[in-house]
Design a protein around this nucleic acid. Structure first.
Lengths: 224, 224
DNA sequence: CAGTATCCATTTCGATACTG
DNA sequence: CAGTATCGAAATGGATACTG
């Protein structure tokens, strides 16, 4: 793709950043992904070839640094890449306010559960091990049931029963849980309307919203 | 172009905004352009067909409002579009810091003079009429000479001698004047190095930087 | 794990000319 | 002024399979 033929800094920035997928790859790196297949997990519809191309372009542009650690390959943002955070944040805040309609194609249980998993607030987690069982009743069998195993050591997400005693069960549908995650729906409204049901001890139920945190954009105020 | 298949607000925002030229059209509207051909002036390398397509997409997305006033057509940003300002500002600030190399293809005397024109600070302008004659000695004859006619009523830019008495003459080359405009080069350095010469009364010369303002990104601090 | 290789359908865009 | 019409070249990217 040719450039814009403009010296304007916005144009120069967009020559790099407006290429499809590019800023989503940057987002993944901001969220802490370091390895090729870890990044892929956040952009599953992107072909590996294309991810490879984009990582190379970002590296050439000085946004990403590729570095071989033993026989591992590690990607990370350079200072220039880190400084894209305000851009990504502004885009997300705008998107959550003004792009409200989600098509069915935008819903993805794997992405959703992965996002939920990586936003568990370990500091707010009750002591011991908490095991949440999620059921998304409108989703194909393979991706219908999930187990979130959280303890001070970390969080695991399983799509098969790991065998631990379940602390609480959440039932919802894919869209409702997605809306809750995005902050388009509050915990209160989700529960009151029956779009989400939580089955478990009331102490666990009450603690849930504190450590099962939502998207960083969830609290962006919505337009009246 | 298909969507990303993601509910992430950044992805949803980029489905609209990562299409080529889109954000530059938004930028033009932010800078005050209202009419089709006025917008085109800011994105001269964009074909009218494509501009038309983009304006329609932006209108559908609720970012732009199209409105017929008599037999004029007026475009303007909606509140949603206005809220893209932080995005554009973050991109520009990032771009001016981290995309420093300008190719010769990025230089354009028409865009540059147009930008300079629309950033004249009328409030800081001395009384009466000021006429600046610009000479870009490395530019093709057609775009080498410009006259900026500024008074309290407004600013005109001419590519042919309008016949007024010239208050001061500026001589430079296209790249130097562009760097000055972007803030990659200070007035001081430009003058000291001889990349810019100003010929005129010293009061006029000293007042120049106050009203002939540079890009809004010029004062963004550069990385060490 | 970390990618490449291949291949083609599709889209996208730019150029140019034209119109109410 | 405010766009449409048309057309072909280029590239973009998706799908799939494969490799060190």
């Amino acid at each position: 793709m040719a450039g814009y033929g403009q010296f304007c800094p916005v144009a120069k920035a967009m020559e790099l950043l407006d290429e499809r997928w590019t800023l989503l790859v940057v987002r993944e790196l901001m969220l802490g992904s370091r390895h090729f297949n870890e990044i892929r997990r956040g952009v599953p519809r992107m072909s590996p070839t294309l991810l490879s191309t984009r990582l190379r372009a970002l590296t050439r542009a000085g946004v990403v640094e590729r570095w071989e650690d033993g026989h591992q390959v590690v990607y990370r943002l350079t200072p220039a890449g880190e400084e894209l955070r305000p851009v990504v944040e502004a885009l997300g805040a705008w998107g959550v306010r003004w792009v409200r309609e989600l098509g069915d194609e935008d819903l993805d249980p794997h992405l959703l559960m992965w996002d939920i998993r990586r936003n568990v607030d370990l500091d707010a987690l009750p002591g011991g091990r908490t095991v949440l069982q999620f059921t998304l009743h409108d989703v194909a069998p393979r991706a219908r049931r999930w187990w979130l195993v959280a303890s001070a050591d970390g969080v695991d997400l399983c799509d098969a029963d790991p065998g631990y005693a379940v602390t609480a069960r959440l039932e919802s549908d894919l869209r409702s849980l997605t809306l809750l995650w995005r902050g388009d729906l509050s915990w209160q409204d989700a529960l009151r309307s029956g779009r989400l049901a939580v089955d478990g001890p009331s102490t666990v139920r009450r603690a849930l919203p504190r450590w099962l945190t939502r998207s960083v954009f969830a609290d962006v105020p919505r337009p009246a």
